[in-house]
Design a protein around this nucleic acid. Structure first.
Length: 360
DNA sequence: GCTATTTGACCGTC
DNA sequence: GACGGTCAAATAGC
């Protein structure tokens, strides 16, 4: 029990970091468009990238069976290692054959699946080896991410055709090692209700997605899981349960400049619970209670300063204590230069600015 | 000529 | 020493 509390504490810490970053990003994006020069855009991208790392690290902490990583503190994903409080810390180098500045990250995030289409996972892979395995009819193929060198992405994949799959269709056991760290900046795309499709699909993670997202994924970018990740954590941070049942079409998102009342009506229309956290993370009841207590509304709304401004001039953020203010207090209020950070705002921000949705 | 793939050799682990 | 994973030179394809 104390272990779980510690785990939740670590998760809160990570989410709090994301909260602070979101405030900076929000302030940046709140500038008049003519003030958004290249430097500001680069800054926004940098913040956005770090936010994506926060979310990934947080998600990895929430993966069932990975509680040990939670207890150890920040997830040990390579991309999570490049955070401000980890700079300067030694990076484990296990592979002695790699010399110079290159190091090998710890083996993490091993994931297996059986599929008939092992090459359609949304990423570009480069084959670097093939090996005949004892007692196997088919050779095992070894792939690494196409961007392993230029972007230092350590994602790998092993492909093993099942012995029992002789004939049609052949089945392959795909083993993924390490997470992709090769996300890059994506051209700004405003995803609105107009291009959200009416039906959903299921990923290998079991989460529900819409085809409009899937086409991005199948296009070789792997954004699909990023989108659901973003949705999940905007839900957590915003304190609103923004998730539709698997059989329910995705509702329309209100436009950026529309009244926030649309969100309330949307939620009243059945889009509330169970949240994605409930559906996909498999946390036990006590953990979920703790999560909702901690994350349901732990963060007061973020107020962006009026432009012009600089990151260093941002006002200090309020303390991250559990607030008695309910989710209703996080409804959007977008008048003038001040607006609240709510789930919808976060979703909109990340849908068009996050490097999570970038081609590789 | 450039890039991607193949494949034998090498290395670490058990 | 067997085995699995990786490297890197050779080869193929464009």
């Amino acid at each position: 029990m104390a272990f779980q509390q510690e785990a939740v504490g670590k998760l809160r810490e990570e989410l709090g970091r994301g909260y602070n970053l979101s405030a900076k990003l929000l302030a940046l994006l709140n500038q008049p468009s003519h003030l958004l020069d290249c430097r500001a855009q680069e800054m926004a991208m940098a913040i956005s990238q770090e936010l994506s790392q926060v979310f990934r690290a947080s998600l990895s902490m929430l993966k069932p069976g990975d509680s040990s990583r939670v207890a150890e503190g920040r997830a040990t994903e390579p991309e999570a290692a490049l955070t401000e409080d980890s700079i300067g810390q030694p990076t484990p180098a296990k592979d002695k054959r790699i010399s110079g500045d290159e190091v090998t990250p710890p083996r993490i995030g091993k994931e297996e699946e059986i599929t008939a289409e092992p090459y359609k996972d949304g990423y570009k892979w480069k084959k670097y080896g093939q090996k005949n395995i004892k007692n196997r009819k088919f050779a095992r193929l070894y792939f690494r991410c196409m961007h392993s060198h230029e972007r230092g992405c350590w994602a790998k994949k092993q492909l093993q055709q099942e012995d029992s799959s002789i004939g049609s269709p052949p089945l392959y056991k795909v083993t993924y090692l390490n997470d992709h760290t090769c996300h890059q900046v994506f051209p700004i795309v405003n995803i609105t209700s107009a291009n959200l499709p009416a039906t959903s699909t299921t990923t290998r993670n079991g989460a529900q997605f819409a085809p409009a997202c899937r086409h991005l994924h199948d296009g070789g970018n792997g954004e699909l899981e990023d989108i659901i990740m973003t949705s999940t954590f905007t839900t957590v941070i915003g304190g609103a349960a923004y998730a539709a049942p698997s059989s329910t079409p995705l509702p329309s998102l209100p436009p950026m400049d529309e009244s926030p009342s649309d969100l309330a009506s949307y939620e009243a229309g059945g889009g509330q619970s169970p949240s994605l956290l409930d559906l996909s993370l498999g946390l036990d009841e006590a953990m979920m209670d703790e999560m909702y207590f901690s994350c349901g509304s732990p963060f007061p709304p973020v107020e962006a300063p009026a432009a012009p401004w600089s990151l260093s001039s941002l006002p200090p953020l309020p303390p991250m204590e559990a607030s008695s203010v309910g989710p209703a207090a996080y409804m959007p209020s977008r008048g003038g230069h001040s607006m609240s950070l709510d789930a919808m705002t976060m979703t909109e921000i990340f849908l068009w600015s996050s490097p999570l949705f970038s081609p590789r």
